[in-house]
Simulated scan of single mutants.
Amino acid sequence: MNAHFNPEMVAIILASAVATYVTRIGGYVLIRKMKNIPPRMEAALNAVPAAVLTTLVAPAFFAGGIEVKIALAVSLLAGMRLSTIPMLLAGWAVAVAIRHFGG
C-alpha cells in the first residue's frame, strides 16, 4: 500500500463532501418549495454574510501579528467609505508594506 494513501482520510473527505452537499442542496430545496419566506427565516438568511465574515476575520485577528491587526483596522475604515475591492486592496497593501518594510 502507498504510504501517502490513507483510507480513513479518504473516508473523512468523502463524508465531509457529502455533508456539505446535503446541507447546501437541502437549504435550496427547502426554500424553493416555499411560496413565501417567513420573516424569521429571512432575518436569519440576511445574517449569514456577517456570520461568514466573522468566521473569516476573527481567526486572522487573534492568530495574526500586528501587521494583520493594522491591516484589518485599515480595511474596516476603508470599508466605511469604499466598495469591496478597494477595501480589500487597502488592507492587503498595508499588510504587505508592513511585512516588507517592518521586517
Rank of each mutant, 00 (worst) to 15 (best):
47 A>P: 04
98 I>E: 04
64 G>T: 02
54 T>G: 00
33 K>E: 11
89 L>C: 15
55 T>Q: 00
53 L>Y: 01
17 A>F: 06
86 P>L: 13
25 I>C: 02
53 L>C: 03
17 A>L: 12
51 A>P: 03
31 I>E: 06
59 P>T: 03
73 A>C: 09
92 W>E: 14
88 L>W: 12
40 R>P: 03
43 A>P: 05
39 P>Y: 03
55 T>M: 00
93 A>H: 08
47 A>Q: 06
44 A>Q: 05
30 L>A: 11
22 V>P: 03
46 N>M: 05
82 L>C: 10
87 M>F: 09
45 L>H: 02
88 L>Y: 15
33 K>W: 02
45 L>D: 01
83 S>T: 15
28 Y>P: 05
46 N>E: 02
99 R>A: 14
85 I>A: 12
56 L>F: 07
71 A>F: 10
65 G>D: 12
9 M>Q: 13
66 I>S: 05
100 H>F: 15
48 V>T: 02
29 V>I: 10
3 A>K: 07
35 K>W: 03
35 K>P: 02
7 P>K: 05
90 A>N: 12
37 I>H: 06
71 A>W: 11
96 V>H: 09
56 L>E: 08
58 A>K: 00
101 F>P: 09
101 F>R: 07
22 V>M: 06
63 A>C: 06
64 G>V: 02
33 K>S: 08
81 R>C: 13
17 A>T: 08
103 G>F: 14
53 L>S: 02
47 A>I: 06
101 F>A: 09
87 M>R: 11
24 R>C: 04
30 L>D: 03
80 M>W: 11
103 G>R: 14
58 A>F: 00
46 N>C: 01
54 T>R: 00
78 A>D: 09
100 H>L: 15
2 N>R: 13
1 M>T: 13
5 F>P: 11
1 M>Q: 08
18 V>W: 06
101 F>G: 07
37 I>F: 04
58 A>D: 00
46 N>W: 03
12 I>E: 15
99 R>I: 13
80 M>H: 08
1 M>A: 14
81 R>W: 14
21 Y>M: 12
34 M>Y: 02
4 H>E: 12
103 G>T: 13
60 A>W: 01
59 P>H: 03
56 L>R: 00
15 A>M: 12
76 L>Y: 14
4 H>P: 01
58 A>P: 00
58 A>H: 00
50 A>H: 00
72 L>K: 03
44 A>S: 08
93 A>D: 12
101 F>M: 10
60 A>R: 07
41 M>H: 01
83 S>F: 13
79 G>M: 10
102 G>S: 11
49 P>K: 01
15 A>P: 09
87 M>C: 15
21 Y>G: 08
93 A>W: 05
92 W>F: 15
8 E>N: 10
79 G>C: 09
76 L>M: 14
102 G>Y: 10
34 M>L: 13
84 T>Y: 07
70 I>A: 08
26 G>H: 06
94 V>E: 15
100 H>Y: 15
103 G>M: 14
88 L>R: 03
68 V>G: 07
40 R>G: 04
80 M>E: 01
34 M>I: 06
92 W>S: 12
85 I>W: 13
20 T>I: 11
44 A>R: 04
7 P>S: 09
95 A>D: 14
56 L>W: 02
80 M>D: 00
43 A>S: 06
70 I>G: 05
100 H>D: 06
44 A>G: 03
72 L>I: 13
1 M>E: 13
17 A>D: 04
66 I>M: 09
19 A>N: 04
19 A>D: 04
